[in-house]
């Protein structure tokens, strides 16, 4: 299943004095099984873009085809689209409302009109995927959980819809390093094991560098870069110009190059740069 975006434009408060163009002329194809990191500073349009992917926002002009369904067409069943494209908002724990963990995760599947057995199966499966113990937690109140657990319940609530594409808006915002690592590894597993297409919006270049296979950079409502991480991160100057960072490994490689060391272009992972430094030090990597 793929998502095709053609000439997408979105205008806020159209016609009024505060009219702003939030997205302009976006053309993108999101292929089956991709892992995309979507980056851009606040207000670059990335959150607006992801809300188009499951029909929460309607394009002002242009087309979005999700599995052949045209989202710009008012007749398209939006719920059919939302079943295919799951969207996890920023701070998703704020949307929890049911009495128990199980009921909250079941909210999505119930809205899909599934039968009891199927709902129960999906809840268990979703909890397993986010590493929450069903037997221990399913009857607990969501409001008794820790912040990291609440976040995982919220993600499970979307996973239980069994979407083919999972869009996550800043999934690690506000978590401590341990919580962040947990979330990142569960996203990694979803992609690897279930083959789910992932679109991850993030401010953290290091997170994107460690996970994404393709990086899309947005600025002022436009897609300004789109490519493999090594290509995007090699444009350090341009990224900084847009108020974005590059991974520290990229900065290090750049500075070493300036000092005259022969470091290949396009390195962005810590392990890669480590191997290079070991060469300089005259050592072979033992198990890098």
């Amino acid at each position: 299943m793929s998502i095709v975006i053609e000439q997408l434009n979105y205008v806020y408060m159209s016609g009024g004095p505060y009219e702003t163009k939030a997205l302009s002329d976006i053309n993108l194809t999101i292929g089956d099984g991709e892992f995309i990191g979507l980056i851009g500073h606040t207000g670059s349009g990335k959150s607006t873009l992801v809300q188009h992917l499951n029909g929460l926002l309607m394009p002002s002009s242009g087309r979005i085809l999700v599995d052949g369904l045209d989202l710009a067409d008012k007749a398209t069943d939006r719920r059919a689209v939302r079943r295919r494209v799951g969207l996890v908002f920023q701070y998703p724990e704020n949307q929890l409302f049911e009495e128990t963990v199980e009921k909250d995760i079941a909210f999505g599947p119930k809205n899909l009109g599934l039968d009891e057995n199927e709902i129960a199966r999906r809840v268990k499966d979703a909890m397993r995927r986010v590493a929450l113990d069903y037997d221990e937690l399913h009857e607990r109140s969501v409001f008794e959980l820790s912040g990291g657990q609440m976040r995982r319940v919220a993600i499970a609530g979307v996973l239980a819809m069994e979407p083919q594409v999972l869009v996550l808006d800043e999934p690690c915002a506000g978590l401590d390093p341990r919580g962040r690592e947990e979330i990142l590894s569960l996203i990694r597993n979803l992609h690897k094991e279930a083959g789910t297409t992932i679109v991850m919006v993030s401010h953290s270049m290091d997170d994107v560098a460690s996970l994404a296979e393709r990086v899309i950079v947005m600025n002022h409502g436009e897609v300004v870069m789109d490519g493999a991480p090594r290509d995007v991160f090699s444009c350090g100057e341009e990224l900084r110009g847009m108020g974005l960072d590059v991974p520290q490994a990229v900065m290090l490689a750049q500075k070493l190059r300036e000092k005259g060391y022969d470091i290949p272009e396009g390195l962005y992972r810590t392990e890669e740069i480590m191997a290079e430094i070991m060469k300089i030090a005259g050592k072979e990597a033992q198990h890098a």
């Binding site: 341990r178 290090l252 990597a285 198990h287």
Partner: peptide
């Protein structure tokens, strides 16, 4: 907790005998 990426790199390099 995490350590800063460069401290982590230094740590890994030292582990590899650099």
């Amino acid at each position: 907790l995490d350590v800063p990426p460069m401290t982590d790199l230094a740590y890994m390099l030292r582990k590899n005998g650099v």
